[in-house]
Amino acid sequence: MSEQQQAVLLLLAHPSQHRSEVNLPLFELAKTIPGVTTVDLYGEYPEFDIDIEREQQRLLAHDVVIFQFPLYWYSTPAILKEWQDLVLEYGFAYGTDGNALKGKRFFCAITAGGKEEAYQAEGYNHFTLRQLLAPLEQTASLTGMRYLPPFALFGARTAVEDGLMALHLKEWRELLTALVAGKLNRRLAAKLEKLNGHLDQIITG
């Protein structure tokens, strides 16, 4: 377990932020934590003209990579897929000389409209969130990144009304702080279905 300061890169993909009730507060909170670099992808690339070189330099400069997004059709919003298509180049992220991402940690911070019960084999979404994120998990695997389960908020459409925000924001702060301090037990965390709700078990010291 390394206890060095870790650089955290948070990539937010949210195309209608003027309507955001959960993701924006999470993102704003992340901005205040030292050691976390925050990037608003739709804000920086409103025309989808992603600067590949700059994004690759960003990846190289960080130890932890987080995708933050609202779940759209069981996947990421378009710009985050575009980002993967462009930035994770052959020879950079994969292939013979593609070692740039090896050993970094990767996970998703997700908001989902449906209740947690819906994301079950018996629920109406038929798969768990972690199962639905299999393409990203495999992308991490192919690029040599250590995959962690998502930090997820279910029922996000009514999270504010249901009073879920205070706890979620508190856990988000704890998680990011622990990541920067290098105090997250990856082996324990990797087995979970989601990171939140179990922070006391996976944060060391």
Binding site: L86, Y90, Y94
Partner: peptide, 15 residues
């Protein structure tokens, strides 16, 4: 056209 550059032919054998 840096974007969407496909990997070289036959790269899957290397993988």
């Amino acid at each position: 056209e840096r974007g969407w550059t496909p990997p070289p032919k036959g790269y899957d054998e290397l993988l």
